[in-house]
Amino acid sequence: MTEIQLRNRDRIAEIVLDGPETRNALDADDLRDIAAAVAKVAEAIPNVRVLLIRGEGKVFCSGRDISGVDVDTDDARAFLAEVFAPVFQAIRALPIPVIAQVQGAALGLGFGVAAAADIIFAADDAKFGSPFAAIGAMLDSGAHHVFLDRLGYHRTMDLIVTGDFMTGAEAAAAGIVSRAVPAADLSDFVESKLERIVSGPAEAFAMEKGFVQKIADDRPSLSEVLAEEAALQESARQTPDYAEGFKAFQERRKPNFE
């Protein structure tokens, strides 16, 4: 079993997957613990400004923990639809930026948890892909949507059928993850980005997250995007952060977003 830890560092919340014996694999109870942790983070907003999801040890998450699964009685549909999907949706629904820090493997369910984040920073030697061909299972956890959207039909089928993995560097080049950096630099790189985010305009970030998700999910026309951008920008103009940002720019100083 993987222990799910919720840690708070001032305005940064961390959900840490800690299961050295299982390579941070997740069973149903682990996923429920993640959902509970996400709910606590939501309650702590606006004191919490960003959420980091990471795994202890050499891997992010090796996928579903199937060590105790009885194939004859397991309900895969219920596990994915009733246990995993609510976790994915809860992470996406948080009105703060969510960062996944990925080292080592992020496979199957592990990739799904990372994909729920808004930003994925990966080690250049991390591993992404579909290990399911080896056990006769389907790609799941939302990966069909991500792979087809970023990679296209042929590359998606390649990864599914061959079971080959992408490195973090390859995943960054393909748009599967945000950026890849040398593994030894990953923690420091992520910390520098967290510090920038927590000092940024929280209300604008919340509006951006909702709007970008809407565009990604609904694929509106350009004219619809332009109209919605105009309306959202006017909403942003009425926030204290907007006023502070403009004044700071005009006065040639660093803004102080409260």
Rank of each mutant, 00 (worst) to 15 (best):
A39C: 07
K58L: 04
A39S: 13
V69G: 05
V83L: 09
A105F: 07
V41T: 11
A36Y: 05
E21K: 10
I53P: 01
R77S: 03
L26A: 12
E14L: 14
I120D: 01
L109T: 07
A90M: 10
R32Q: 15
R64Y: 13
D29H: 11
Q101T: 03
K127V: 10
D75N: 13
V38L: 15
F121N: 06
G136T: 08
T22C: 03
A85E: 15
N47E: 14
G112V: 02
I45D: 11
R77T: 04
A115Q: 12
I135G: 01
I15M: 11
K127G: 11
A126S: 15
L26P: 05
V113E: 01
E56A: 11
D65Q: 05
V113P: 02
I99C: 05
P86C: 08
I53E: 00
A115T: 02
F132P: 04
K40W: 11
E21R: 12
R77I: 02
K58F: 01
C61L: 09
V41Y: 07
L52I: 01
A137I: 00
L109H: 00
D29I: 10
F111C: 09
F84M: 09
I119K: 00
A100M: 09
D33C: 13
D74G: 02
V102S: 04
A117G: 04
A85C: 06
A116P: 02
D18S: 11
V113W: 03
P20W: 03
F84S: 09
L52C: 02
C61H: 09
M138F: 12
G57R: 06
R77C: 00
F132V: 11
V16R: 11
T73K: 10
E43C: 12
V71A: 15
F111S: 12
A25L: 08
I135P: 02
G68F: 07
A126W: 14
A105T: 00
L31H: 03
A78N: 04
A81V: 07
A133R: 11
A42P: 02
A25G: 14
A126Q: 15
I135K: 00
D125E: 15
L17F: 15
F84A: 12
G136F: 07
F111P: 00
V41L: 12
S67E: 15
A39L: 09
Q101R: 13
E14C: 14
A28T: 09
I53Y: 00
D18C: 05
D30T: 10
D70M: 13
I135M: 07
P46H: 05
A39G: 12
P46I: 04
L26F: 09
V87L: 08
T22D: 02
I15R: 06
G112A: 03
F128S: 09
D70P: 13
T73D: 07
A122K: 09
D27L: 08
V16G: 06
D33P: 00
P131M: 07
I91F: 09
K127C: 10
G19Y: 06
A35F: 10
L107N: 02
V71W: 14
I15L: 13
A36L: 14
V71R: 15
S67V: 14
T73S: 14
A28V: 07
V71G: 14
A90T: 05
